[in-house]
């Protein structure tokens, strides 16, 4: 366990700026998620922390020690990749015992540690198997056990669930989340899956074009996005022009009483699909599309001015069909207005 600090981290590849002056701290025992679109710099950030990239500017600190120029093998940082990257020339047990062996730990002790981790991850029966004979989920567990075997100060996970099927991903997600909490490991979790980040992480950092857009707890990121990019990227949202005058929120097609917003003539309201409810309300609309999602229903409703909003309904809302006129109400307290 350790505390990690990235100070003014900048990484440039030739003329391309991959990471642009990021300041980020991971608290002791915290799981920090890093999300963002492809090419936003999240993997470069992870690789810099691991020691595989040297920052163009800035510093990497682990427990207040400057490790910016320390080679990867001397950082005590565990890595778990999307592609598992297991060593095919070794058995599962040998893979997990490899790190302790490099640390100079005796044969009996390192084998015991490897077996203990395999048992913790419920894969002790696979100890003597060759990695290529395992399923994706099993390989990922071995990768995780191998990274944990060195008792890392920081655990770095680079899209570890990508490539696994949905049900396995959900099961592994719960298990991994419990394990990280139990072991109190400081971890950086890079993913493009926001839902995964919400479930797995104590806090989330949203990156865009190499810059840090917002860091906060999952609820803050979802309910109080710092800007339009975060609102658009994390979850589905209706981003609507808004004005707040004399305590009234005006969305153009309807106005609402509210004292919670600062006065603005040029604001943007972030309305999540589940902030809109079906029933008697001031918003008149017509259902244009309906999507059944299994655990709920999403509809696209057209407003009188021609704009559309996405509305989330529970799966019992079977009566709503395309072409229906509907009335919507807004949970004003739940929406967020960007100035």
């Amino acid at each position: 366990m350790a505390e990690v600090c990235l100070e003014g981290l900048t990484k440039r590849f030739d003329t391309e700026l991959a990471v642009d002056g990021i300041d980020l701290a991971i608290r002791d025992g915290e799981v920090l998620g890093v999300v963002g679109p492809s090419g936003c710099g999240k993997t470069t950030t992870l690789r810099t922390l691991a020691g595989f990239e040297t920052p163009t500017e800035g510093r990497v600190l682990i427990d207040d020690e400057d490790v910016t120029h320390v080679p990867p093998e001397r950082r005590n940082v565990g890595l778990v990749f999307q592609s598992y990257a297991l060593f095919d020339n070794m058995t599962v047990l040998e893979n997990v015992a490899f790190g302790p062996k490099m640390q100079g730990i005796g044969k009996t002790e390192r084998r015991d540690r490897a077996r203990e981790l395999l048992s913790m991850l419920d894969i002790d029966a696979l100890a003597d198997r060759a990695p290529e004979t395992l399923s994706g989920g099993q390989q990922q567990r071995v990768g995780l056990a191998r990274a944990l075997a060195i008792e890392p100060d920081v655990l770095l996970l680079d899209e570890p669930m990508t490539g696994l099927d949905a049900s396995l991903k959900e099961r592994l997600r719960t298990e991994l989340s419990g394990l990280l909490e139990e072991l109190e490991v400081t971890a950086l979790y890079v993913t493009h899956d926001q839902e995964e980040a919400m479930v797995m992480c104590d806090r989330i950092a949203v990156l865009n074009d190499g810059s840090l857009e917002q860091v906060g707890r999952p609820t803050e990121i979802y309910e109080r996005p710092a800007n339009r990019f975060v609102a658009d990227f994390v979850g589905t949202s209706n981003v609507l022009p808004a004005t707040v005058e004399n305590g009234r929120l005006d969305l153009g097609f309807a106005t609402f009483e509210s004292n919670g917003f600062s006065e603005t003539t040029d604001g943007t309201a972030v309305v999540r699909p589940d902030d809109l409810t079906l029933g008697a309300g001031p918003i008149e609309a017509i259902v244009r599309d309906r999507f059944y999602l299994g655990n709920g229903v999403r509809i696209r409703a057209e407003l009188p001015d021609g704009e559309s909003v996405i509305v989330g309904l529970d799966r019992t809302a079977r009566e709503v069909t395309v072409g229906d006129p509907i009335s919507l109400d807004l949970e004003v307290d739940r929406i967020h207005v960007l100035e």
């Binding site: 691991a50 093998e73 592609s83 490899f98 490099m102 060195i150 770095l156």
Partner: peptide, 20 residues
Amino acid sequence: SMDLRRIEESARSLGASWPR
């Protein structure tokens, strides 16, 4: 046929020097 970079980086993160 190997994910050379990832394999190498895994080994190094586990404490193995480059020659090893």
